[in-house]
Design a protein around this nucleic acid. Structure first.
Length: 302
DNA sequence: AAGACGAAAGTGGTTGA
DNA sequence: TCAACAACTTTCGTCTT
């Protein structure tokens, strides 16, 4: 949590006050987060058996029901407890009370939602090794979505997944839908749906995924040299200019480019290896490979 | 024996009526 | 809402190294 910054003064000198349950900025005194929970264990476990016995919590519980059905409401009937009508003056007062009570509940429900969502967000972000600036951006986008009331009727987890997907694309740190689906436990389909929904309602205009962004990841997973990456990028640039990638899955194109570059630079990897790290099949690589080779007139050593 | 290649059939998602 | 469609996958047989 050390990477968090104070939204007011930008200082990152934040301190948890566990006695009060608050996260406080030590510079300007702003309470950034309240009702936090000390998640750390106050015991040590020396083996997995002890860990299981001492842990108070099991698998993560989903508090999906906002306020767990325990919210208080002030009723509409302007009668006192004996059923006698109350005076006009009191009635007006009750009206105001009702109004503010409702507003207060809504605002706490947003906060509760955010608290859960941010935990999930940080969990997924860690699993995907996302840098903290990306997490911040994702948190901000989620906050906007909540404030616009876009979460209603949707699982928090699926919105979190969609937000992360969106932010990753904006930052050019491509994580495939598959990877996000894997760690978030939300289906690809659902993430896609939620993503589209977010896109429309938050007015995000998304540049279409550039396959070039996938090259470094694929290349490093295949332990290919920098020259191969350079070559692959070069091939892709040409392919983009010739419009060979529109309508094609970006991962497939990137994978084929990496494969070709590898062969051309004498660092051959099998189609299967490339296919595995790219999350496509050999056949797709072959198809893209053929297209690229034919249309670009590359001479690939056999 | 393993990899590369390509044909054919199947799958899930998008689009347009 | 349904059918047509494109992209991709699965499966399988053949060829090459």
């Amino acid at each position: 949590m050390a990477e968090k910054k104070c939204p007011e003064c930008g200082s990152n000198n934040l301190k948890y006050d566990y006695a009060r349950g608050e996260l406080v900025c030590m510079k300007c005194g702003l309470v950034i987060d309240e009702n936090i929970i000390d998640e750390g264990p106050e015991w040590r476990a020396f083996d997995s058996d002890q860990r299981e016995k001492r842990a108070r919590t099991g698998a993560p519980i989903k508090f999906m029901k906002p306020n767990k059905g325990l919210s208080t409401e002030i009723d509409q009937y302007n009668k006192d407890i004996r059923g006698v009508k109350i005076s006009a003056k009191t009635r007006a007062q009750m009206q105001r009370l009702r109004k503010w009570h409702k507003r207060a509940s809504i605002s706490t429900s947003i906060e509760r939602n955010l608290a859960i969502a941010l935990t999930e967000l940080s969990r997924v972000a860690s699993a995907l090794n996302l840098p903290s600036n990306v997490r911040e951006a994702a948190a901000l986008m989620y906050r906007k979505a909540v404030e616009k009331g876009l979460i209603r009727g949707r699982l928090i987890e699926s919105v979190v997944a969609a937000v992360i997907y969106t932010i990753c694309r904006q930052y050019g740190i491509p994580r495939t839908l598959d990877e996000i689906a894997e760690v978030s436990g939300i289906s690809k389909k659902e993430i896609g749906r939620t993503y589209r929904f977010l896109k429309v309602d938050l007015g995000i205009n998304m540049p279409l995924t550039n396959p070039v962004h996938y090259i470094p990841r694929f290349a490093s997973e295949l332990k290919l040299s920098g020259e191969v990456q350079e070559k692959a990028r070069e091939i892709l640039e040409k392919a983009i200019q010739k419009g060979l990638i529109s309508g094609r899955g970006p991962t497939g194109v990137a994978a084929a480019a990496v494969y070709i570059a590898g062969v051309m630079m004498g660092e051959r990897r099998t189609q299967k290896e490339v296919a595995d790290v790219a999350g496509v099949t050999e056949v797709t690589i072959r198809n893209r490979y053929r297209e690229l080779k034919d249309k670009l007139g590359l001479d690939v050593p056999t």
